[in-house]
Amino acid sequence: MPVTFPMPYAEFLGALPVKSVEFDLPEAVEMSRTAGGDLLVAAIGARLWQGEVMLGKLNPWEAQDAQALIDLMRGAGSSFLATHTRYPYPRQDPTGSVLGASTVQIAALDGTDARMISLKGLPVGYALSRGDMLSFTYGATPLRYALHRVQDAQITADSSGVTPAFEVLPHIAPGAQVDAAVTLVRPHCKAIIVPESTQTGRQSRFMRDGMSFRFLQTLR
């Protein structure tokens, strides 16, 4: 049946025998130096997530299946939902059981400070920690996927399930809306495989080892 992009976690990243996924949020700045020795740094664009997916040792059939999936994703227009497989849940809810079926939403955004966000719909006393991730969608045609990392040491939901405002990185893009649904379980961004980054690994008599690819968040 025809593939729909971005491919959901279960159909691509979750279907690969992943050994590790690394995420990075590199700076998007340019720097210049004045005659007096001052360093001038300016932002030149949105900060986008990037990283690398490493697969484990594969038998020949596993390697063939993985290569077919990866090659599909290397085509123009292909994309998938990238999530940090090592940290699928918030730190203080390592199985997601406390969150359960809660419907989490954006409670408030700061119109003057794109770093700040508040959530609602959480269990009473639910805690988020520095390094936890959250995601939501915004915009239309295209639908954009935002992935943010909590920067405050700890945020706790009050008796109404609402958090105080807290800081996230990267900054929240224009277009994000109050009441948008927020994902805390396998939060994700839309990503593409970086061209010419795929490594097919080495084939021994019985196993293939070292298959990997790099990915980059896309907002389109």
Rank of each mutant, 00 (worst) to 15 (best):
P17R: 08
E22S: 09
F23D: 05
S32V: 07
T34F: 12
A35K: 12
G36P: 00
L39P: 01
L40W: 01
V41Q: 07
G56R: 13
E62N: 07
Q64H: 04
A66T: 00
I70W: 08
G77A: 02
L81R: 13
L81A: 11
T83G: 04
T83L: 10
P88L: 03
P88K: 05
R91Y: 12
L99H: 14
A101H: 10
T103G: 09
I106Q: 05
D110H: 14
G111W: 06
G111N: 09
S118Y: 07
A127Q: 15
S129F: 14
S129P: 08
R130L: 12
M133C: 11
L134S: 12
T137Q: 04
R144T: 07
S159H: 15
V162T: 15
P164Q: 13
P170T: 12
P170V: 11
H171Q: 14
A173Y: 10
G175L: 06
Q177C: 10
V182C: 08
T183C: 06
H188D: 05
I192T: 08
V194R: 03
V194W: 01
S197V: 05
T198S: 00
T198I: 00
T198C: 01
M211F: 00
R214E: 02
L216M: 00
Q217L: 00
T218A: 02
R220I: 03
